[in-house]
Design a protein around this nucleic acid. Structure first.
Lengths: 240, 240
DNA sequence: GCTGCTGTGTGACTTGTGTCACAGCCAGCT
DNA sequence: AGCTGGCTGTGACACAAGTCACACAGCAGC
């Protein structure tokens, strides 16, 4: 197969090495075989839009490689980034199951490999394979959980600083750096995008970062960020 | 059976009149029979707590009668009401499926009848009845959808007035009054609770209501509210 | 080199709304 | 009655953070 956008395409789910690590993909062979027959392996460049908020659901997108930005946006153009989806995640799942419009917009921020499955095919597949159906329920629970966290962060924070601190701690806990004395993390997003993740303005994010650096809580080394004072950051994250 | 808290207990799901109207309860007889054998029909007074945010999931609660307040709260006591659950809804579902802690707190605001099912029993039931499993996926999609709406309302609104207007329109659309010229709705919540629903303070809600009344958009008739100017309210709800 | 473009840093000003404080009101007690 | 407690109304004030306005840095392409 051709390798578009510099991707190394995973041909078959059955031989995929990452299969066991992934919540959805770890299905019994019989289910996986039938999944194999209805999926379309596709590749997208960076910046491609998988689906847009408000569209009728065409089907699900299983993310195999690359990252996808999930966002909602208001009529005035203001955007809120809900999360950055990682490989293994199923996108457009809830809309496809319920038949309601996609509730958010999915846009690739890396070159991505994606397995697409049409809605009718997927629903039929679920009816026939109850273990897959259970996996779907698990994925949806996970998504709901994340959404609840987002609600908590947006609704119960007193200040933008609190939300930023929460976000940084969350990031550092994801890449396994959290237990280290001085966790490091790659800043893959612009201030603008960070602002959209915590529902504030770009300038505020810049100011907050400047403040955290002045107070020796954070330190920038090129594009990686070092958390120099975990305790202080955690204090900021809980009611500042 | 005794009628505690002034409730008329529905004994069996099989003979329940409301069955067909409810998303979860409308199962094939075989599944319902097996559900019947694992459920515990219980009744709660007003103000009872079904489960608390952070608890390990004991199981699911199918709400048959009465309303339940679903909320999350911060360490400082600040509370955010996510929604008021109506009969037919399944509570604690995502936590029970995923095994993670309940993500919110459920408290009755009416006398309620509830069918409780233990986690192990419920998971076994799901494995055996794939149609129930699909219903669960549908319910979870619904919950996710609602959470997304909440995120949008909290994260993309510019002002408290906008969020209040959205909430009022949503309420009026629920009880089928929306298409009327001047929809009416019962104000079942206090200003404090409304404030907790839109993430603002009690005083702000009071002030906003006063303002809406002064501008002839709203009118209070006892405890029912009349929306006198739907268009103006809608204008407020979209970027004010 | 110059030109654009995108991202960052900062100052000045404005405004929404949280907080505190208190007053009035109604319902349900004893 | 008279008291209590929860809810609602309103004023005064402070402050976080949005907005607008620029300056500058880095980096691409020609």
């Amino acid at each position: 197969m051709l390798s578009p956008y510099g991707l190394d395409i995973i041909e078959s789910c059955l031989t995929c090495k990452m299969r066991a690590d992934r919540i959805f993909c770890d299905l019994p062979t019989s289910a996986l075989q039938s999944f194999e027959s209805i999926k379309y392996a596709t590749a997208y460049p960076k910046g491609a839009v998988l689906f847009v908020e408000g569209q009728a659901p065409r089907g699900i997108f299983v993310l195999c490689k690359g990252r996808v930005k999930l966002s909602i946006c208001a009529s005035d153009g203001k955007t809120l980034i809900l999360k950055i989806a990682e490989p293994g995640e199923v996108l457009g799942l809830s809309a496809t199951v319920s038949g309601k419009a996609y509730e958010l917009t999915a846009e690739t921020i890396d070159p991505c490999q994606v397995n697409f499955v049409k809605r009718e095919d997927f629903l039929k597949f679920l009816k026939e394979h109850s273990d897959a159906c259970f996996k779907v329920a698990e994925q949806l629970s996970e998504k709901y959980n994340v959404a609840c966290h987002e609600v908590r962060s947006l609704g119960l924070s007193h200040s933008a600083g609190e939300k930023l601190a929460k976000l940084l701690l969350e990031w550092s806990s994801k890449n396994g750096e959290a237990q280290k004395q001085e966790p490091r993390l790659k800043l893959a997003l612009t201030h603008e995008e960070i602002a959209q993740m915590i529902g504030t303005s770009r300038e505020t994010v810049t100011r907050l970062f400047a403040d955290l650096k002045k107070r020796q809580i954070l330190q920038a080394k090129g594009s990686t960020l070092v958390i120099r004072n975990k305790a202080a950051l955690r204090a900021l994250a809980t009611s500042s």
